[in-house]
Nucleic acid binder design. Structure first.
Lengths: 243, 243
DNA sequence: CGGGCCATTGACATCCATCAAAGCGTGTGG
DNA sequence: CCACACGCTTTGATGGATGTCAATGGCCCG
């Protein structure tokens, strides 16, 4: 791993006392199970902007939950061409598309200075014996990841450039809102190039799309800061092409 | 469910005696665990061509393994536009991108008269208590599904029409070969339109791509039957655009 | 202050979706 | 068993969306 700083969990770092607990772990646990959960996360790690949390093909030992900051996952093929698979922030799980003994199938890079909790994979089976819901919880998380990608594939197949950008902005807005941030005022951590790669476009096309939205009075843009003036219009952009 | 015929499992239908056992279930089980596995699959179901195995938004109760035949999964959005997500044949798992209580996130249709084994979701947790490897096995299957979709997303993002078609043919070839069929002689169960939707293209573009491959001496085509004359050339098609 | 990455805009080329038409294959009903 | 109808496949012509190449200016960080 590329990380410099590792913090052993002190008592104040228990999962059960973490502000993300309800988003991160299964619900309806009893006291004993809570204690087991606290044993699950052994470390937190800080990752500087631009550094990788894990790399494609490296050994898969752990799953991660983002505490603070922002990550992108990237998959590379043998020709060196990259594709951004997704963006991850507070309370998102990372490193799920990977299997023990087969290594990570993508790399994860920090887009800002970030911090993650580490869940050693081997502990999951161990602790799941005593916690009934944990296995189902993990299956649910895996399923969600698949469902998310299904949705992306649907979008990329049939929707054109401006529609994809609109989808991206609305998703981002919704995700920020879920986390208690503004629904209209977005500070992007990712570059135009990252967005473009994620959406299967070029960075010029992303810029042009955003410029068009500005001209139409749908958003305001100041470099990485984007204000959504009219959510409904963004919805219309998506559907207008999909007729 | 849309299926007409349901067969209760007779003794000769035990998982442990099934020709697909090694592909379908975890390895290294002892005798008792084998018995438990046999209790996992309660039914087989035949699905006629064109019929659905499950439908988007319908309740999720079971996972499926294809015994014979061919399926496609399709996701629809509110505008009625569809997208083919994947194709599934012998020993493939189906219905994994779905979670208990949240319903299936896509529909599955039989492309030929087919037969599947049904694994009731609730039994999984129950039996997993006694079989150590089953949970890990399922997580592995889920991870593979995610990895597969990651790969698709990579392809769809950066590769052009002919390259996508080449990837599709090579995948199909490899999957058939894994199952003991010819690597060069493919009998497609899906229409050009299905392939097009899966690859994010139109059916005309798929046809044109195949015609180009014929002209270049890479494949032979007779309607749904395709013979791959030169695998290496297909590889070159992919890379030539990706430079 | 300077260098390098990022963002924006324009001109142009190209790939592919769209529209159209015709041939072919398959399944069904008379 | 044949005929017909419908859907699937193929091919052509055309226009539009978006990738590519290029140039400029801005921002951030060292």
């Amino acid at each position: 791993m590329d990380m410099k700083i590792k913090d052993e969990l002190s008592s104040r770092m228990k999962c059960t006392q973490c502000s993300l607990f309800t988003k991160c772990m299964p619900q309806g646990l009893n006291v004993n199970e809570m204690t087991d959960i606290d044993a699950l996360v052994t470390q937190r790690v800080k990752v500087k902007r631009g550094m990788s949390l894990f790399r494609q093909s490296s050994q898969f030992n752990s799953m991660y939950v983002v505490r603070t900051g922002y990550f992108k996952t990237v998959i590379s093929n043998e020709n060196g061409s990259d594709q951004v698979l997704g963006f991850y922030t507070r309370s998102d799980y990372l490193g799920f598309g990977s299997v023990l003994n087969e290594g990570h199938n993508c790399s994860a890079y920090a887009l800002e200075d970030s911090e993650v909790c580490i869940i050693p994979y081997l502990k999951v089976d161990e602790i799941a014996k005593t916690i009934k819901n944990l296995q189902a919880h993990i299956r649910k998380l895996l399923s969600k990841e698949i469902a998310r990608e299904n949705f992306e594939m649907l979008s990329l197949g049939s929707v054109k450039a401006e529609g994809r950008i609109a989808i991206f902005l609305l998703n981002l807005s919704a995700r920020h809102y879920e986390r208690g941030y503004s629904r209209t005022d977005l500070n992007l951590s990712m570059s135009r190039q990252d967005i473009a790669s994620f959406l299967g476009l070029t960075h010029e096309t992303v810029t042009r799309g955003l410029s068009k939205f500005i001209k139409d009075g749908i958003i305001l843009v100041d470099n990485r800061r984007i204000v959504i003036v009219d959510h409904d219009m963004l919805d219309l952009v998506i559907n207008r092409e999909n007729s």
